[in-house]
Amino acid sequence: MTETDGMATGLAYRAIMAVDIERSAGRGNTAFFAAREALDAALRGAFSEAGIAWGAGHHHDLGDGLRVTLPADTPKARLLHPLVPELAARLRAHNRTAAEEARVRVRIAMHAGDVRLGPAGAAGGWPFEILARLLDAAPARAALAQAPSSVVAAVLVSRHFHDETVPHGYPGIDRERFQRVAFTAKEYAGEAWLHLAGHPTAPPWAGAGATGVPAPAPAPEPERPASPASPASEMPQVGGVSHMHNTASGHATLFASQNGGQHIHQHGNGA
């Protein structure tokens, strides 16, 4: 059976990614269209530099972004490098000369799994639902909002995608620049790995008082909020473990312990 036959009758394993422009709402048509054109051009250029045929994938317009189902022969690691750095470089070049309202920063989600591919570029399946939750997850929104303007892309990859790409020493992929986070988006709860393209080795949430503590393998300690009299910068000691309660942008509340525990509750979606 050919691959075309398989696409018509069943499922096919594919890498999938989605890109969304940060704070796209309220720009007005002229600035929004300029931002979308810049993103589309940057994506096409990055795909070309990564050796991935743009026309061979399936594309779905998300309005303020794009979802791409990659060709069957695409190595997943190539999406992290060189595609992400190439995309970030092109967006930074655009932002240097663009009006403020037309500048582009993006969240990128990556996953892989068995999807159904139909005629005329249609694609569907459970992996796309996970991809949508990754794209909308609070950790990536908060990290990008806190990062300096030179950081133009927050990448959140599923555990499956991470395990097949990041730890293996592939060229250009530094495992130390990926941090595990737990998140809940709508009915989906899970863990993923967060990377800020172009950010220094030390992540912005490292250290006490940060709002994005890496998620641990064991279950976190129960949350015990500080008393009203405690200063916001202090973390009360409970059973030898320090706890903190932070509210991050992106309508997410984070509860974390000094030993690395984290819980994220998302209360709503922003643009």
Rank of each mutant, 00 (worst) to 15 (best):
M1H: 08
E3T: 03
G6E: 14
T9L: 02
G10E: 10
G10F: 11
S24P: 12
A25I: 09
G26W: 10
T30V: 13
E49V: 13
E49T: 12
W54I: 02
H58L: 05
D61M: 12
D64A: 03
L66S: 10
L70Y: 07
P71D: 10
T74D: 04
K76G: 08
P85E: 09
E86N: 08
L87F: 05
L87W: 07
A93F: 11
H94R: 07
R105W: 13
R107F: 08
M110D: 07
G113P: 13
R116I: 11
L117G: 00
P119N: 03
A120I: 02
G121C: 11
A123P: 07
G124R: 13
G124P: 00
D136Y: 00
D136I: 00
A138I: 04
P139G: 02
A147E: 10
S150H: 04
V151I: 15
V152S: 03
V152A: 09
S158T: 14
H160L: 10
F161C: 05
D163K: 01
V166K: 10
P167W: 04
Y170D: 12
R177C: 15
F178W: 15
F178Q: 13
Q179C: 00
Q179A: 06
E191T: 13
A197Q: 05
H199I: 04
P200L: 12
P203F: 07
P204R: 06
A206W: 05
A210G: 14
P216W: 11
P222D: 05
E223Y: 01
S227N: 00
S227K: 02
S227V: 03
A232I: 10
S233N: 02
M235S: 02
M235D: 06
G240K: 02
S242D: 02
S242F: 11
M244C: 13
H251N: 12
A252H: 00
A252P: 01
A256N: 04
S257P: 09
G261F: 05
H263I: 15
Q266E: 01
G268Q: 08
A271S: 14
